[in-house]
Amino acid sequence: MRELDLDRALAVATGLAGWACERIRRPRPEGVREKDGPADIVTDTDEAVEAHLREVLGRAFPGHGIVGEEYGVTPGSADSPHWLIDPVDGTTNYAHGIGWCSVSIGLVAPDGTPLLGVVADPWRGETFTAVRGGGARLNGTPVRAAPHTTLTGHVFLTEWAAHAHWPGMDALLRDLAGRHCTVRVMGSTALSLAQVAAGRATAAAIGSFHPVDGLPALLLATEAGAVALPGLPSWETPLLLAAPGVAAEAAEVWRGAGL
């Protein structure tokens, strides 16, 4: 891989996330329509944001590949990294006026190693950033995973598989309920995983990992000290993130659900 200025890449990605947040905060989403079914929708905003991010990244980093939620893969040169773009992660919330969605941007090495991640919350003015080996930050201030030593009494975030439960989810929820751990399904994978980095959620899980909306936030969380099971996940495999002090308990629950 050619020499890459990650500080510059992070600055460009953070600036684009700020622009996207302003676009998302416009009063009303337009052009809401189905993609693969009633529970999978897209808006004009999703497409406009991704198109702009692709254009700027393509000019700033010629030769880099781009993988986006709405427009798929633009190949880059063989020895260059590629960008991951989810312009509105949580489109259903956004389209229905629920203020919980995010902009997710990541950069990945040719071998799949995440290099940087940015997840921005348009509604709270929060931007999570991480560069591999440099820790995680929230609006420039370092953040760490929660210091908790038990799941009991704390928050566990998860997401549906679109509109449905995923295999093992019901057993997982039952075990967590028995431990008096409060589960929330919020509607944005990237933003939910980022809450583990911020120390707000003690753990989070998704049933099917998609790098476009998951890898930037996964880097944030692990740079903040969270533990990922099964490490760096592959496409469409389950993922569990946990604060280090609850990792063993979370893994026990995870295995008990057959995951």
Score class of each variant (00 low, 15 high):
Gly178Asn: 13
Glu249Asp: 01
Pro114Ser: 05
Arg26Ile: 04
Ser102Asp: 12
Ala17Lys: 06
Gly125His: 14
Asn139Gly: 14
Val246Tyr: 10
His163Met: 03
Val183Trp: 07
Glu159Pro: 02
Thr45Glu: 04
Val227Pro: 01
Leu6Lys: 05
Asp46Pro: 03
Val118Phe: 07
Thr43Lys: 03
Thr141Asp: 02
Trp123Met: 06
Val56Leu: 04
Ala248Pro: 00
Asp175Leu: 13
Phe128Tyr: 15
Thr222Arg: 11
Gly112Glu: 02
Gly153Phe: 14
Gly256Cys: 05
Ser104His: 04
Gly31Lys: 01
Ser208Ala: 15
Thr152Ala: 10
Asn93Asp: 05
Ala217Phe: 11
Leu107Lys: 06
Leu241Trp: 13
Arg54Phe: 12
Thr127Arg: 02
Gly178Lys: 08
Ala48Ile: 11
Ala48Tyr: 08
Cys181Val: 14
Met1Pro: 08
Ile98Lys: 06
Asp86Cys: 00
Leu229Ile: 15
Arg174His: 14
Gly153Gln: 12
Ala17Val: 13
Pro230His: 12
Arg144Val: 14
Asn139Leu: 12
Ala9Met: 04
Ala177Leu: 07
Gly135Leu: 05
Val12Phe: 04
Gly117Ala: 03
Val185Cys: 04
Gly37Ala: 07
Leu115Thr: 09
Ile85Lys: 03
Ser192Lys: 02
Val88Glu: 03
Met1Gly: 12
Glu70Pro: 09
Leu220Ser: 08
Asp40Arg: 00
Arg25Phe: 02
Pro114Ala: 02
Ala9Gln: 01
Asp40Ala: 05
Ala136Tyr: 08
Arg144Gly: 11
Gly207Glu: 10
Leu172Asn: 11
Pro29Asp: 01
Phe156Val: 15
Gly199Glu: 02
Met1Ser: 14
Ala198Thr: 14
His96Gly: 02
Asp40Thr: 11
Ala190Tyr: 07
Arg33Glu: 02
Leu193Ile: 11
Tyr71His: 15
Gly97Cys: 02
Gly153Tyr: 14
Glu22Asn: 10
Asp44Lys: 00
Glu70Gln: 06
Gly63Cys: 01
Ala197Thr: 08
Pro29Lys: 00
Pro75Gln: 00
Pro147Glu: 10
